[in-house]
Each structure stands twice: as C-alpha cells, then as structure tokens.
Design a protein around this nucleic acid. Structure first.
Lengths: 228, 228
DNA sequence: GTACTGGAAGTTGTTGGACAGACTCAAGCG
DNA sequence: CGCTTGAGTCTGTCCAACAACTTCCAGTAC
C-alpha cells in the first residue's frame, strides 16, 4: 500500500521501541539524535516520524526536554483487538440495535422521494447480488447506509460509518459536531448529572436511561430555546 | 492550548491556500520550495506541515511530481458546517438521545467498581470545575465518556467518540469492527430487508423500527447461534 | 543545613545548502 | 505520427549549524 519511505520505517521503529522497552505513558523517548544514530538515518527523517507520531497522539514533544509517550500504541494493536474481538462484533450489534432501529423510524418519517428511490435501488442491488453471488456484504451495508442517510441527520450517518469501520468517511464528514456551550444554568446541569451517576451506582437501569434522556433533552432546550 | 510552532502556521496556511484557491481533489499544491518562500520559512518546516497534512489524509505527496489534494479540508470546515450547523447540533442530540440513554442503561447494569469510581471522580471534577470556572465543557464531556465506557462495549465508545468529534480516538480504536458474514440464510435475510424498506415506503415509523430491530436480532442469531 | 544562583550539558525548533531519484513535458528524431 | 531524449522541476534524504528552552548540579550566600 504505502511506499516504505525511511520515515515510515522510523515510525514503526519508534513504535517498536515503545512496545519492546514497554515505555509507559509519560516516559521519555530516546532523543532525536540518538534515534537517528540507532536507525542509521538522519535526524531530519526521525523528526518527520515524530511529527506523525505526535499528530497521531502517541507522543508529545517538549522543547528542550525531549519527546514523551502520550498514549501507548500497543493499546490498540495488542491489548485491544484480540481480547475484544468477539465482544465487539457482538457489541457492534448492541449499538446498532438502538441506533439503526431509531434511524429506521426517522427514515420512515422523513425520507424524501429521492431517498426512497435510492433505498429501493439498494434493495434491488442486494437482491440481484444474493441471487448471483455467494456473498453480498457490500450491498447489505449499502442498503443499511441508505436507510441511515434518509434520516436527514448527518450525525446518524457519522455514527454509522464509525461503527462499520468506515473511518475515511468519518474523517471527511463534519468533524466539529459543534460543542457550543449552553448558557450557565450550571446548577440544574450539575443536578442532572448527579441523578445519572446515582442511578448507575444503584444499578437502576431504567432510571439511568431516563435520567440521561432527561439531561440531554434539557441540554438541548438550553442550547436552543426557540426550537420547541 | 497548542503552542503555535511555525509548522502549525504552515499547516493552516496550506489549508488556507487549498480553500482560497479552491483547489479540487487531485489538484497540485505549490511546490515545497514555493510554499517555503511564500510563508517565509524554511523548506524543512513546510515538509513537517505536509507530512501532517498527508497523515491527516488531506494531501498526498508523489516523489518527483509534487503534492496533491486528496480530500478537501473545506468539505468539513466550510461546505458542511454552515449549512448543517443547526441541524447537526440538533441532530447530534437526536443521536445521543438513543445512544447515550441506552449506554446509561447498560452502564448501570454492568459497571465495575473501578468504573464506578472513575465516574464518581469525573463527577467530582465537573462539580469543582463548575464552581471555579465559567465553562466546564471538558469535564462534562469526560463524565459522559466515562459513562459510555462503563458499558464495557468498545463499539459504544467508538460511536460516542465519532459523535463528539474525537476522531483521533476513533482512529486509535479498533477500526475493524469485523464484518464477519453470517451463513447463507439468504432468503430470510432478504425478506427482512424487504419488510424494512416497505415500512419506510409506507412511512410506518414504528413498523420500520420494529423491522430493523428484528432484522438485527436475527442477524446476530445467525452470526453466533450459541449465544442465546 | 538550606535556599538561591549560575552555568554547563542536553534537547527540540529552525535554517540553509546540497545531492539523489523520480516525474513532466516538450523538442527532436525516425 | 510515435518514440526517445534531455532539461527542468519536484520530492526524499542528508548534513552542519545555531537558537531557544529545560534540566540538573555545583557552588555560593545565608
């Protein structure tokens, strides 16, 4: 895929160092000069690798002090996947239950004629693929995505893309799901939070869901008082 | 927050160029030397910015040819937001309703003592921040994230991070929420899809949600027959 | 003994120049 | 017209140096 430039090798080399020496979060990496010497490349290239590592949130450079581990890359490469493989396919369904069921409801309410046509087309494609091929994963996914898209709510699509692993789409979409801050009704907000936490502590499932729904509803009202 | 190093300025400068000159996907950027001259900095620093832009999937460098636009940053910064600004903050709430309410329910059921302690800690932090500062957005977000994390389901966390714009975390997580294909019970599967589409066509909201839930449930049973 | 000061050493940030390898494009040749 | 060739351009890599900053310790003042 990617051409293995020297900077790429340096990148994985540094990741390797973090894993092999089991450097913890906050630990200091060898200096740029040292790494350059170690890999037999120039410091310039080591810097390029470090810039990318920093951009990926794995390391952090402090001028005059050194580069430090910010989050361990092994967390995603080793610990995370194997352990959670099963539970995440299962877990993915868990999320899709609530997400896509609601998306289907909204799609039914809001779909435009054009979106309906696209959904129908995706269904036809799926039918054709199923009859001819053995697998029709792509068509299946496409139909689901069309339905989600018909909610006319980009946030739904965003969540769906994230769940189905379409990271590229996620990045291309609106990243700043604006975090506009509500006015200072801090007291009420804090109380709502406390109610949620209390329900979770008490393992009161319905109570927790209800409190969260209430909190989000109030937050939305605070954010845009006009809208209903 | 971030110290404005020269490379950071170069990064936004290049983004600015792409937007201002409305460079399209596939168009070529000015050469590194030209950019260096333009910004009044050395080529090395321009390269650092380009490395990050490439790592972010915005540009792509081809040796001997130049750097090219791979995906327009304006798509997320300009085109997307202004049009959908209101609807996406509102829309974000719509999704969070269903997602976080269910997350709170699961968190209540599954939280470990450690996770409960973390949730409590986040709440304390939020309280402290609210009393001292004007804004406590970060603490608010952190509390919500802790609750979602207590579902013990990485897919929930993934969707949450995507919705709150924490793309870095999304990418760091396990990207391949494996798309293991169910065995070929194609006939049943197709019929379920048709029911969903039919409900959406008829604008039968509850029917659509129900059909989708049914479909996902059956799909999960097909995927792992043992698990209930 | 303790607290402050100063400086030396080490590290990242930035610069300018240099060369190799790869691509582009057009002039020139068959 | 089609192909080759070569000049010009561009990215990839290296080097040597200086600036700005942090860390740490020795030495001094109290």
């Amino acid at each position: 895929m990617t051409v293995q430039r020297l900077a790429d090798k340096a990148y994985s080399g540094i990741v390797e160092i973090i894993k092999a020496d089991s450097l913890d979060v906050g630990d200091r990496l060898p200096s740029e000069s040292r790494l350059a010497e170690l890999f037999g490349i120039s410091r310039t290239i080591v810097r390029e690798a470090l810039v990318r590592l920093a951009s990926d949130g794995i390391t952090e450079a402090r001028r005059g002090a050194g580069s430090f581990v910010k989050s361990r890359p092994s967390d995603r490469l080793m610990t995370f996947l194997p352990m959670a493989e099963l539970s995440s396919t299962l877990g993915s369904y868990e999320v899709r239950f609530v997400l896509e069921a609601e998306a289907a409801r909204l799609a039914a309410a809001r779909r435009s004629p054009e979106e309906m046509a696209e959904i129908q087309f995706a269904l036809d494609q799926l039918r054709a693929a199923m009859l001819s091929n053995e697998t029709a994963d792509a068509e299946d996914m496409e139909l689901h995505r069309r339905i989600v898209a018909a909610t006319a709510n980009p946030a739904f699509t965003l969540a769906f893309d994230a769940l189905t692993g379409d990271i590229e789409r996620v990045m291309r979409a609106g990243v700043d799901i604006s975090r506009s801050r509500p006015p200072h009704v801090l007291g009420a907000m804090l109380r709502e939070h406390e109610m949620i936490v209390e329900a979770i502590r008490a393992q009161d499932c319905d109570g927790a869901a209800l409190a969260m729904r209430w909190h989000l509803w109030e937050g939305r009202k605070r954010l845009m008082p006009g809208e209903l």
